[in-house]
């Protein structure tokens, strides 16, 4: 049996072996990519990546939940008191310090992603000590700017990318 040749390949073969091996490896990598990429969001999902919402009919003091990218987004038409409460909090008291102004585009409209930053539950509106949101899963409490105040969640409710197309129409995403 010529198994000795397996173990010690003569040097003159090395270059050819390495080249063929390297080209083969490139080929395998090129095949793997489509098999991985197929699990990414597809064209029909990406086409729904932004959504337009008419907010003209939302009365002051009410929260509307809309579906965006498969999950909830809270659109809150804030009252004067809620705005003041949110703006008057000293930054030092906050776990994740952000001013209210940096979280809204228009003071009366708060738009946040309705997913608790602890473990992904959907918080309940107008509840909890600050009358912002209360997460029913593990008791995280958010204020009227969607900022975390008590409980296990580490971060404020995220603000999605959005733009006011008109005074009453918002494009989220």
């Amino acid at each position: 049996m010529a198994s000795a040749a397996t173990v010690e390949a003569p040097n003159r073969r090395d270059f050819l072996f390495l080249t063929a091996g390297a080209v083969g490896a490139v080929g395998v990598a090129a095949v793997v990519w489509p098999l991985v990429d197929q699990m990414n969001p597809d064209a029909s999902t990406l086409a729904l990546a932004s959504t337009e919402v008419d907010i003209g009919a939302i009365p002051e003091g009410q929260i509307v939940t809309v579906k965006w990218r498969g999950g909830p987004v809270f659109i809150r038409h804030r009252t004067k008191k809620e705005i003041e409460d949110a703006e008057n909090v000293p930054l030092g008291e906050l776990r994740d310090p952000q001013t209210d102004q940096s979280r809204v585009k228009k003071r009366e409209w708060l738009i946040v992603i309705g997913v608790c930053t602890h473990l992904g539950c959907v918080p309940l509106g107008q509840e909890g000590k600050y009358e912002g949101w209360l997460c029913p899963c593990h008791g995280s409490i958010y204020d009227t700017s969607g900022r975390i105040r008590q409980g296990p969640a580490p971060l404020n409710l995220a603000v999605p990318e959005y733009a006011f197309l008109t005074d009453t129409r918002v494009k989220i995403g």
Partner: peptide, 30 residues
């Protein structure tokens, strides 16, 4: 891979193949 996108139901199967061919990333290739 195809089983990740295919729907085995008489009403959905045909259109799920169409979905694989048109929308899924490299679905046509697979």
């Amino acid at each position: 891979v195809l089983a990740m996108h295919y729907v085995p139901s008489a009403t959905e199967a045909f259109s799920s193949i169409n979905h694989i061919m048109r929308d899924v990333n490299y679905g046509w290739l697979v």
